[in-house]
Amino acid sequence: MIRLEHVCRSFNVGDQQVAALRDLNIDIGAGEYVSIMGPSGSGKSTLLNMIGLLDRPTSGTYRLDGVDVTALDEVQQAQVRRDKIGFVFQFFHLVPRLSAAMNIELPLILAGVPPEERKPRVAELLASYGLSNRADHRPEQLSGGQRQRVAIARATIMRPAVLLADEPTGNLDRATGREVMTLLEGLVERGVTLILVTHDHEIGDRAGRSLVMVDGQLESDSKRVAP
């Protein structure tokens, strides 16, 4: 489903070129649960942004569902992001002035889904994440765990095939982090491809497949047999 071929990404820092990704070749199948680990600056987040079409490779090709998405223009890429990819961030990135329900509704609004269709979908999702009584609260009135659940609900409301999570538990305490992980893993069981960037080995090791990155290159790619 996701196929990266000879992907390089370098940044200009001053007059120096710094390579964040060096000649990566990765294949991720549909429904896989992949964790990406590695020290800071190893290129994990860059890789995730690349997969999420927020960043373009300097060279190499990226195919998503067999389509060379690096060749698409900005508008088409936005459309792919909207329909196929969901993001979960470490700092939640909820819109502070919008209520929980409105935050979840946002992707539907951007996609131009008619209002009468939006409301039931949002209500359904709120209910399944146990947020029904928090629908009208603004993010600042929610706990960290609740915020991340709202963020996950927002990432999944368009029913994307791929869910990208950048340190989803990085800003949560251990217990809440575990809850969030259970939620994400529940999505994997429903066939979503989950790609997770984390520092935390305990979380990273739960994934069916672990990629370890060092200096922009893949150091190890270990698949575990599902328990």
Partner: peptide, 9 residues
């Protein structure tokens, strides 16, 4: 965020 959610420029 809007961009990540798929809003074109």
């Amino acid at each position: 965020l809007l961009k990540a959610l798929g809003a074109p420029p």
